[in-house]
Design a protein around this nucleic acid. Structure first.
Lengths: 156, 156
DNA sequence: ATGCAAATGCAAATGATTTGCAAAAAGAAA
DNA sequence: TTTCTTTTTGCAAATCATTTGCATTTGCAT
């Protein structure tokens, strides 16, 4: 795992640290009913490293319980997003892809050939964004930095 | 217009400098037929400061010629994008919004209340992105930086 | 002017996502 | 653990942005 003063890779960190927040308890506390479909979807989300879209989540879900419907997946994603448990991305304008909202904010490098996603974070970039927004008279609500790249021929 | 070593506003620049590339000639040279709908859509694109979506372009177009169809707008946007004459954005995962591809690369600050877009550019951020991608073993094909913000209460 | 390939308008198709509704399940109360 | 009320579900149909098939029209090289 890379680590230096300017930026760091996030992807592997959450699993290395085995951060699996107990969403079930959290959600219940917030008055959300924990149903069978929701529990299954949460499990899928907390145990994957990728950023699946609704259809992919649906397919993984019906392998566990084939009565789950696609609309429930969509409804659950909306619910979890509102509760702040997941984040939604629209890479390249494609279908929404989701990831569990583990603590650290991070940006994404998307492999244009495979769709793979690497998460990283740079305080330096973050700080520059703040500076620019402030100078333009704005407060940043959220932001989105996506690098679309291809594996280098000769990695250094 | 702001200007310093680290970043600059782009939005106003293109109109201040009155950069209206002659897309018609360029496209014709590339073997693209200049039809009435295409001419009208190009005019709309080169004479607006905002980032309209297909529907907005369509409405502006039928004011000039009410026989233009929405599918032609979409087809023309795809064509112009392939020709590199325009850029497509999917802010917030909403419908595609377009802008003429005037020379300078730039990023966007989107006003979450109004949908307004301010264009800016920071070499420093650009350079950091390159660094990160390289360290991860990738070449950047393109990237996307969007700041979503709200006007500060006390602008400085 | 003429001919033919390319572009258009229209309507129907697509893909992602949402919604209405009756039936089923969750959780509080008894 | 049974009952009751409310929420959630599955299904099918609806919606939204966008694309496509096809018969007709148009650009433009000859």
């Amino acid at each position: 795992m890379q680590l230096n003063a300017f930026w760091r890779i996030i992807t592997l960190m959450k699993h290395a640290l085995n951060q699996k927040p107990d969403y079930e308890k959290e959600l219940r506390k917030a008055g959300v009913r924990i149903t069978r479909p929701r529990r299954i979807i949460l499990d899928i989300l907390t145990s994957t490293e990728d950023h699946p879209d609704a259809m992919k989540i649906f397919h993984r879900a019906i392998e566990i319980d084939d009565s789950i419907s696609l609309s429930t997946v969509y409804r659950t994603m909306n619910l979890l997003e509102e509760m702040g448990a997941i984040h939604r991305h629209a890479f390249n304008g494609g279908p929404s892809r989701f990831e569990q909202a583990h603590g650290e904010h991070h940006d994404h490098l998307i492999d244009v050939d495979t769709g793979d996603v690497i998460e990283f974070q740079s305080d330096k970039i973050e700080k520059l964004q703040e500076e620019i927004a402030r100078a333009l008279g704005y407060d940043i609500i959220h932001h989105r930095l996506e690098l679309y790249g291809r594996k280098s021929k000769r990695p250094e």
